[in-house]
Nucleic acid binder design. Structure first.
Lengths: 218, 218
DNA sequence: TTTAATAGTGTAGAAAATACACATTATATT
DNA sequence: AATATAATGTGTATTTTCTACACTATTAAA
């Protein structure tokens, strides 16, 4: 009993104050030359998450990235050559980790490129819907998960954290209230270190205290 | 390119103050005679949701029930005869609608039976995990969706609503605070009707004002 | 030394969450 | 008719959280 199916990856990062998603230019029919989410068939005997990691590695050069399943898409008409079921995953990466690494090495996709989620081209298949549902899912879980910190360097400023909240929620937050609330949650560790390389007052750095986060959310 | 996959249904109802899930006794190998979630192969050319509706109809006699996709499960070892991908759905039904209807008419399942989610038998495949993730998903969404009302008759008492909250969240709530909060949300319509057939003071009936609910949540 | 750019901070008022106990009402029982 | 039973329905005081709002501090570059 054969079962062909694919995984598609919504690989997100945070850069220049914006959420960005990694798109690849398809080198295969159907939708040849269209922009699409990185994705491909899951090998026989390969675990789904391993396939996602493989594809994410091929397009970002990174191993061990944060993954969460979004949903399965199996519309009879989603693929012009017959129903192909796909399972979409959200993957989060730090921009500093990938910035110079993207050079896809596969035959089925040409260049990969970060696109601001505000400004996406038309995508192949139902991939626009998949991206949009991914963002909905992040919004839903923003206060109940530490996934945000997968988008930030280990040491980050409160402004960076606030920008991620704002870009995921799609609204702007009051700086004082945001800081009061987030520090009150009690899972950020204030460091005695400061930003470097900026031409203005350097901001204090913080990091996530994972143990405290666990305690608070379980 | 063929693609065989199944859907499994976590069909939930609310009765006697408890959440219950519908299980069927399998009549096919593997796991013959085990209790399992109702589920079966999706036909070629059949939309996933239609397959879910078909299976739910076969086990409950109901059409047009509330559905939400939970997730895809595709572990290489989840099925002893080779990987079978399944997409799990949550379905919610009113007990009054199904109470006398359950008589499965398929060859692949024998009796169907409501089990309290507190007290499930060992299940076939990874179905225990699927049930448990379903409950997690309901918990997550309880305050942001009107799915609860799919478990209640059109006209219900506040005590019934509170019991559903309590059984999904797994904790008990203060009656006065619960009522204050839920009525404050502004989407319940107080009726001039009361419970009948009880041997004590009859409670007032309410119903969901769907338009107001929409307004409030969009 | 001045300018530019962002960091960092507090308070008062409003709203929401919590803790908590008893009188009311309808039916069934004697 | 009186009583018992079982669940309904209600208010207040306290604590906590949310919201609105503006200026000084710091650093580097010009």
């Amino acid at each position: 009993m054969l079962s062909f199916f694919t995984v598609d990856c919504v690989i997100l990062t945070f850069h220049e104050g914006e959420l960005k998603v990694l798109l690849t230019e398809r080198n295969e029919y159907p939708y040849k030359d269209w922009w699409a989410l990185p994705g491909y068939f899951v090998d026989k005997g390969e675990e789904m998450e391993d396939a996602v990691k493989r594809i994410a590695y091929e397009s970002t050069g990174l191993k061990d990235i944060y993954l969460a399943q979004l949903a399965a898409f199996a519309g009879v008409k989603r693929h012009p050559e017959g129903r192909i079921l796909t399972v979409a995953y959200i993957a989060l990466v730090r921009y500093e980790d990938v910035k110079n690494k993207i050079k896809p090495v596969t035959t089925y996709m040409r260049q990969a490129k970060w696109y601001s989620i505000q400004n996406l081209p038309e995508l192949a298949f139902d991939h626009s819907e998949i991206v949009s549902l991914s963002l909905d899912k992040l919004k839903q879980n923003i206060n109940y998960s530490s996934f945000l910190f997968e988008l930030l360097p280990e040491k980050f400023t409160l402004t960076q954290l606030q920008q991620i909240y704002e870009s995921i929620l799609g609204l702007s937050l009051d700086k004082r209230n945001f800081r009061k609330k987030i520090l009150n949650l009690g899972y950020l560790k204030e460091l005695d270190e400061f930003q470097t390389g900026v031409s203005y007052r350097a901001a204090r750095l913080y990091k996530l205290d994972k143990k405290k986060f666990q305690k608070i959310f379980n």
